[in-house]
Amino acid sequence: MKKIIRALGAVAVLGFGLVACSAPDADVEGSGSGASGSASSSEDESSGGKDSGGKNSGRTGGCGASTMRAGESWSVPIESGGKHRMYQVTTPAEYQADDQTPVVLAFHGMYEHSETMKRLSGFSDKPAIAVYPQGLDGGQGTAWQGAGYSPKTDDVEFTEDILDRVESDLCVDKDRVFAAGFSNGGGFVNLLACRMSDRISAFASVAGAYYEGTRDGCEKASPEPFMEFHGTEDGVMTYRGGDGKGGKYLSVEDFVDEWVVRNGCARDAEVDHPVDGVEHRLYERKCRSDTEVQQYRIDGGGHTWPGAPVHVGQGRDTPDLHATDLIWDFFTDHPAT
């Protein structure tokens, strides 16, 4: 705790001028001894959200504060689990400190960087606070919890800590907090769906790596909206599953079926083809708790983020299918209920 206060102390230093100059009505967190005030208030705030049984409404501590302005991009240092961590955060062009704004958490793939995810996904162009956490390098490359190659760290706790901080710095719509990830980051999003659905309301995975460790706790998970994209010619995380760098992993069909069953949906999906060579399956009949499952099977597609402005991964791109747009529409259709 001592270190957390020290780290936040810097934010107080930088926040002092901004608050004093441009937010005269900012609450107590923005003034004077803001460092420790901000830390404790964010803890209160997050526990309030968790205890509200999925109804996350209520203004976060960052509402009215002027930590960031519209259209800004910051790297933010944070202490989590006794480690120095970092995430990037961008505010949308129309961000206003009094308006509750959705949050998208976007997790990069193995070996990658938060900056890569920012460019790959483009969530910063959506009307949301986009957060790009940075994975740790445990000696085998940057990665998220849940795979055999993952560093020994609690990334779920890290995600909780990030949300605490984002909610205390910015005006967050706690009913509209979403998570998406690519590859190893996609697998980690599954872990979040199983363990952090009290704070995150919808989930999306692209070319996800569904190792056993990414399903830890899923046996007790609640129904959640989930969207999945995967190429049938993905040479890194094969569509049929197998034994990979991080251990055994599920086939995409089995993974999607787990969510269909968990959500209580009927197995007969509505099928359409939004672009040539892409089959979209919508499982929405009989689903519990207003959830649904959507899957995009990209015939011949590689280990890529469909429609991305930059090529990351391996194999064939799918430029006509815009995963980010589809994910964003899916997210906005699934606020916390």
């Binding site: 934010v11 933010v76 970092m86 900056e115």
Partner: peptide, 16 residues
């Protein structure tokens, strides 16, 4: 005064 992690983060931003 400033924790080095904040300085590094701010410099990281201006590089990006």
């Amino acid at each position: 005064v400033t924790p080095p992690e904040e300085t590094l983060a701010a410099l990281d931003d201006v590089v990006r």
